[in-house]
Amino acid sequence: MARQISLSQLMAMLLLSRLFAAIAAGPWKVVSGGEAVLSILAAAGMEGAVWILCCALAKRGDLYDQLARRSRLLAGLVAALYAAFFLVWAADTLATFTYLVKTEFYPQAGTLVFLVIMGAAILYSVMLGVEAVSRMSFLVVIIAGVALGAVYLSMADEVDMLNFVMPASLGPGQVLENTPLLFSRWSEAAAFLFLAPLAKGSWRKGVFWFWAICLVFYEVTTVYLTGVMGGYGALQNYPFLALLSMTELSVLRRLDAVYLMVWIFAAFLRTLVFLQAASMAASHLMQPRSRPRFRVISALLAALAAYFISDHLFVMMDWNHLVQTGLLFLCFLVVLPAVVLLLGKKEVPA
């Protein structure tokens, strides 16, 4: 398969995906303070192991081809499962984003208008290909980095260490109990499995920097959220947005509305990442000429599912509970890759 994008562009896409997951569905309303600092370390350690597993798997070649050398039926089943997994995450992204925007910025508006606008944009974007998405991701990551840096700099004076309690003061059990809440939405490694063949560059370096940047981001954000807002942050639906609403930059106040632009970019690109991963996963299950049609249909399905989830609060709550158990993460980022690693066969050079 032709390597169409650079590894830094791929990692930029995954970073934006993680950024959105952190801001929109972050754990800080449940886990804060010292527990969060340790839970993040534990979750990062677990994710590091998953990354090593996924990198080893991706290095052996295309996932489908590895399993197909053993059994085409098994390969098809795994590919279909992953395609469905990514479609579900695309729908989850849209639903979470819609719920966030509706509750925080446009309380009077209906859900449908956001999904129609976002869905139309995504429908157009899936046809442009992964190269365009990756190029845009790189630019957006830089904008997001500058924006976050500005927030942290302007709020540096407001951090009060008295808001912190000693880490693990509630015992290691609490830390371990909170850890799944963090990694339950970290699906980027699975997307990497299917997008890595498109990227040229050193995977090891790219994955390490991705992991390190995410860890630093989570820790710094935890320090700010806890240090600035203390217990008040834990009462908010979106603690980071609450932090932004308190940030002032010169004459601009209520920066949550300004940073809305960054979240929209991040949600937009995260959805496209998962749709692209779904397309790559399903590519072996259809004729090449059907792939553009699949992309369009998958975008429509994701939008429809997002509408259903975001418009029915109880469905959304049930879905969040399922995600927070970590079952999806364990299944698709640990069990299935391990199965492929054990059962799959490497390509024997001629």
């Binding site: 562009q9 446009y106 606008i117 442009l128 290909g129 365009a132 998405v133 190029r135 845009m136 929209i264």
Partner: peptide, 30 residues
């Protein structure tokens, strides 16, 4: 919201343009 989505579509469209084998955003992206 609409302005941002519109801007995202414009940027994506710009990033997808290829002029005789060279990306229009070359230099900045990639």
């Amino acid at each position: 919201f609409g302005i941002t989505v519109g801007l995202a579509v414009v940027i994506l469209n710009l990033c997808s343009l290829v002029s005789l084998g060279v990306s229009d955003t070359a230099g900045a992206a990639p």
